[in-house]
């Protein structure tokens, strides 16, 4: 898979978005740890709720939703924090949380990498993406029934984040379980089929401004690299392959995590970061038509 991209791009730029994402995933816990380690209190708290420079509150909206379901209205600080967080994700893309902040993403990405290296292709067939919706509903209902924030008893995301910042306990057992589940049982099993936090942020993604766009989809030669790497491959199909049905080039599905991996791996530079407002069908210019013709002529030549 790499050969195709490396042929057209420097290695550094081949992994541009991946490296940026890893930097973000590592920087965020480090920022939290600067306080207890060196006394630089840039941000306090953790992913559930935090305070930047002792002024700007941030609070996880999914946790507050459960708190509301349990019948408790939080203080203003938390509500302001929720508003800021929601506005942020509505701008950058809902599931940016999943791919750029969530510490579990490092675990599942590692499992996916190993899965590919070991050529494991097992997949539980009764797993459906709708399961995570059911889990989300169950979590809200159970919050209402028990009167507590139910998902936080088991949420591996905040647990791992909290583990890094305050002390791990036996959290690693849960993390190992997710790793093995993703490695041997289902591809991207946790994030793709089970995690209700991702579904919740996916709601924000449905209206978010920044989106990945299959800008030059006419140049796609169906190599399949983006589908192989994408954690939620079903989001690519409409934007990339449905031009003839009048579907615009922007990936609008809330499931898209804006991880930018498709931009990295595409050797034809089909994808680019854009906004949801650039969804008009592109005019077919003479130049682009010529390019398409060239591609098809090229592929025919290689086949014969």
């Amino acid at each position: 898979m790499w050969r195709r991209v490396v042929a057209v791009r420097d290695l550094m730029f081949t992994n541009k978005w991946l490296l940026l994402r890893r930097a973000s995933q590592i920087t965020i816990p480090v920022l939290f740890l600067l306080g207890p380690w060196y006394g630089i209190w840039f941000v306090k708290g953790n992913l559930a709720s935090s305070l930047i420079l002792d002024t700007v509150p941030l609070t996880d909206p999914f946790i507050v939703l459960q708190s509301l379901a349990s019948g408790h209205i939080p203080e203003t600080t938390a509500l302001v924090g929720v508003a800021i967080v929601i506005l942020f994700y509505v701008f950058v893309g809902g599931r940016v949380y999943c791919s750029w902040l969530c510490p579990i993403n490092l675990v599942t990405d590692a499992a996916e990498w190993l899965r590919r290296r070991m050529n494991i292709s097992t997949q539980w067939h009764f797993l459906k993406r709708s399961i995570r919706w059911w889990i989300l509903v169950t979590v809200i209902v159970m919050s209402a029934i028990t009167g507590t924030i139910v998902w936080e008893f088991v949420n591996p995301i905040t647990m791992l984040n909290r583990g890094l910042l305050y002390g791990m306990g036996v959290t690693w057992i849960l993390i190992l379980a997710i790793f093995l589940f993703d490695l041997f049982i289902a591809r991207r099993g946790w994030c793709g089929y089970l995690c209700p936090v991702g579904v919740f942020y996916g709601f924000l993604g449905r209206v978010s401004i920044v989106r990945v766009r299959a800008k030059k989809r006419h140049l796609c030669d169906d190599c399949g690299d983006c589908f192989v790497t994408c954690p939620e491959p079903h989001v690519i199909t409409p934007a990339l392959d449905r031009a003839e049905h009048g579907v615009g080039p922007v990936i609008l599905s809330g499931d898209c995590t804006n991880c930018g991996r498709c931009i990295d791996v595409c050797h034809a530079d089909v994808f680019a970061v854009s906004s949801r407002f650039h969804n008009a069908l592109p005019q077919i210019t003479q130049e682009s038509a010529q390019q398409v013709a060239d591609i098809h002529a090229g592929s025919e030549n290689t086949i014969t």
Binding site: G45, N46, S50, T59, V64, P74, T148, I149, T158
Partner: peptide, 17 residues
Amino acid sequence: EEEFLGRCVRCGLCVRA
């Protein structure tokens, strides 16, 4: 305790304070 668990988001800001 139920109300406490319905409100506490486990952020640890009190721990840091």
